[in-house]
């Protein structure tokens, strides 16, 4: 049963050392109110799973600014100047994953699969330490499913049953992450009554969502 609450109440579920998936692509479709609440709560030693690590002072990048991250699985750290240094010093463990592989690892976890076989990364450093499987003369890497304790996702609209719709490319990793974590917290721009979203239009069925938070602050792209 979905619970409607504030961002502050929603992050009460988060404790030190948890793994958190966070939606968004270069801050578009990132749940910024939830991230801000997590910054204010100040929990540290987090494992973050996200497409990219954002920018300094914005969105997901704030978690790095406040040194709350111990480990991150991501495809791109180039937007945040601190990551290069933190990787070298060992302060943050960064696992770089090809973007499509990251999406499939998360999807696999949400779909009850142990992992996927992908040709991406064969013959590159992304293959290091991974099992190779040959099927019909083509080599694939075995990439294991990736789940998390919590997912922070961002949607455009939610009805009070938790059914979600997204807008444009703010969808990105959000619907996949909604399937792959024990607790799913959705930040939304707008609440609508049950029935206002046609069942054919629902992207994330409400059964995946535990908490819904109305994003009070519109941070915009550069927030």
């Amino acid at each position: 049963m979905v619970k409607i609450c504030t961002a502050k109440e929603a992050v009460e579920t988060i404790s030190e050392g948890m793994s958190i998936m966070i939606g968004g692509f270069l801050n578009v479709g990132a749940p910024e109110n939830l991230i801000q609440a997590l910054v204010e709560k100040g929990v540290k030693n987090l494992t973050i799973i996200s497409n990219d690590t954002g920018f300094a002072g914005k969105g997901i990048g704030k978690l790095q600014d406040h040194k709350q991250v111990a480990k991150v699985y991501t495809s791109y750290v180039g937007g945040h100047p601190a990551y290069g240094q933190c990787m070298d010093s060992g302060e943050v463990e960064v696992v770089l994953v090809p973007q499509g592989t990251l999406a499939e690892q998360i999807r696999a976890a949400g779909a009850g699969l142990g992992g996927v076989l992908t040709p991406t990364g064969v013959g590159t450093i992304a293959a290091q330490g991974k099992q190779e499987v040959v099927i019909h003369d083509k080599t694939y890497l075995m990439e294991l499913a990736l789940s998390a304790d919590v997912a922070f996702i961002k949607a455009h609209q939610a009805d009070t049953s938790g059914n979600l719709v997204y807008r444009r490319c703010a969808r990105n990793f959000n619907p996949i992450m909604a399937t792959a974590a024990k607790i799913v917290i959705a930040e939304v721009e707008e609440f609508v009554p049950v029935g206002a979203i046609d069942p054919d239009q629902v992207i994330t069925p409400g059964i995946f969502v535990d908490f819904i938070v109305k994003g009070d602050i519109e941070y915009g792209r550069n927030g």
Binding site: D52, T74, S75, Y76, V77, G78, Y83, G84, M87, V94, L96, P98, Q99, G100, T101, P119, T120, G121, V122, T124, A126
Partner: peptide
């Protein structure tokens, strides 16, 4: 290091 983003998937 910036990360490979989607480049490995695209080229493959």
């Amino acid at each position: 290091v910036t990360g490979m983003g989607g480049a490995m998937d695209l080229v493959t």
